[in-house]
Design a protein around this nucleic acid. Structure first.
Lengths: 344, 344
DNA sequence: CTGAAAGCGCTAACAG
DNA sequence: CTGTTAGCGCTTTCAG
């Protein structure tokens, strides 16, 4: 039932070598035999076996991508660009989601290696550099598989990432510019610690000191509920504040809900700024002021880096680090519009 | 640099056959040699080449999934379950998004076939059955690749799908039960036509007749903007109505925005019901009444069907069709809570 | 231009 | 229990 190059050769009355030649467009083949073969391929609906080819070419035209989770707008958008970009270049994408279980990472990478993917795009489930990671890097290196990561903490690998210190700093600075002095922060280890750092940076740059009591570090995943809970705590603490900067948008949504339940209007009494610019950020009321990541560009860079390092196999060189600027998107939740009105 | 079974055999002082045996756990191997080999594998960090194995086993432990788009909550959620479920079974997932370009479908499926995936999960970019599709089915069949689709219109393939007639009917009926008689519908060919049919079904069941002037069929993709525009048209038409049933949630969000801009309160003056129950449906104000698809179950069924048909290769039998009930989620936008209050 | 033949890395008889 | 050997489907010298 399954058609192989042999059947094609038979049908076209040539040797398999010649069929292979027209398949690969190498070595001139007489136009007439070429036609015959093409016709046989067509009528038999022959699809060459990539696996057999791989054994010789040593290339699978496949790259593997490992992410901590899938059902999240950020990853989905990234996945989308990457898959498209890869397809353009004739590559296909294998995906793996660890669902935040770090233990799964090695298993996934091993399966990528076994499949002999041409490259791996790796984003760890843990934020700080761990042994886990370096083991993974070693494995990939051993099998000469180019790897590019989204974790800047991995020093030995090529990397693409957003400048979250700058992004968070810009967001906080915007709040400061609006006159706020008591600005809370809701984040935690699961949202890049860089964001908290950026928040602190903005205070430093303005010779302000952060009130540690206004920092809420959530223990688990940065969900709507976590944001709700953190804002609730903030309110209960009695510590005064007029603004909250949240490590991500979903956290901000939860925060806003808590605030409203406590009768605090947003942005009237409390200004809120998020991070990521998820789609619904512009839909909710008030529309969320947030920080946008250039996901398209990040995705494209990722693919570009992988392609580069798989062509020249000189991944011996110094790892390339590409960093992207974040963009502050001012909408309603920070009260920027409101203040202006007051001023006028 | 690359380690093969040969190097392992050498290191352990055995033949490659024996290494293969411990790799596959078949045929008893003397514990001591077994240990030696295991040790060699470990220390050399040997990862067997799947491609080579595939040539013999005729199985890639990979399934390909083709979807019309990725950046959309529905697909993301589905992708998530499927990838997880597959991983549990020791399979990996290749994904392809056509981005609604039907022309790309064949190319994707061909690449799946070339990779000799063990199964294909296929959701077409076009709603109605087309020649395109049957070509794809044929191709998969020719190479004995089990295929399961999400398009009920493809008669020759196994299929899993939601009962959108029932879902849409339930939603509409709920509105009717609330006392509404002039219910508009916003949908179009890009959102399953089944939903419009369900809407009509509810009218029929209640001996009501639909006012065709209240049906808005959007031409392109069912986006926020499209919903906004359609609702706008409805308002301009002057045709009276007290409720709108939207073919999906995003459409509903756009609809609500248009309504509010026209000073119509939701659900006070106009009730709105969506479809899909995307995450932000519960976040927006008013919280959207909508219809939920059992995505988890759908995903699981899909994987199950693929696995089944790849083990028994009797895909000669009658295609299996699995249909899932949709669930109405009543929240605020339909005014169900409101009416009750009035009544009491 | 085209065919014969040698593998790619691995598994599966078939003998020892 | 273990080694030898013949392929899997394809590409690539190496000779015609």
């Amino acid at each position: 039932m399954k058609i192989t190059i042999k059947e094609v050769a038979q049908a076209a009355n040539v040797s398999i070598a010649t069929v292979s030649r027209v398949l690969n467009g190498k070595n001139k083949v007489k136009p007439s035999t070429r036609e015959k073969i093409l016709h046989a391929i067509e009528s038999l609906n022959f699809q060459p076996d990539q696996n057999a080819r791989t054994m010789i070419n040593k290339t699978t035209k496949t790259v593997g991508m490992l992410v901590p989770e899938l059902k999240n707008e950020y990853w989905m958008l990234l996945l989308d660009v990457i898959q498209k970009e890869l397809w353009e270049q004739g590559y296909t994408l294998i995906i793996g989601s660890t669902d935040h279980q770090v233990e799964k990472e090695t298993a996934f990478v091993k399966s990528f290696v076994e499949k002999r993917v041409d490259g791996i795009i790796y984003s760890s489930s843990v934020m700080e550099s761990a042994e886990e990671m370096s083991g993974i890097i070693q494995l990939a290196k051993k099998y000469d598989i180019p790897m590019v990561t989204l974790n800047p903490s991995i020093s030995q690998a090529n990397c693409v990432f957003g400048d979250h210190i700058q992004g968070a700093s810009d967001a906080t600075e915007h709040l400061i510019g609006l006159g706020h002095r008591h600005i809370a922060y809701i984040g935690g280890r699961s949202v890049s610690t860089k964001r908290e750092l950026g928040y602190r940076n903005a205070f430093m740059m303005n010779n302000l000191v952060v009130n540690e009591a206004l920092i809420q570090r959530i223990p688990g995943l940065p969900t709507f509920e976590a944001g709700y809970e953190a804002a609730h705590q903030l309110l209960l603490s009695g510590e005064p504040f007029t603004a909250i900067f949240c490590g991500n948008d979903v956290l901000a949504f939860g925060t806003i809900k808590a605030l409203e339940e406590h009768g605090k209007s947003v942005p009237g009494e409390i200004a809120v700024v998020g991070y990521d610019d998820v789609h619904s950020a512009r839909l909710l009321k008030p529309a969320l002021t947030t920080v946008r990541q250039p996901i398209q560009e990040i995705g494209r860079s990722l693919v570009e880096l992988i392609m580069d390092s798989s062509s020249k196999n000189l991944n011996q060189t110094v790892p390339k680090k590409i960093i992207y600027r974040m963009q502050l998107i001012v909408r309603d939740s920070c009260g920027a519009g409101l203040k202006k009105e007051v001023k006028n």
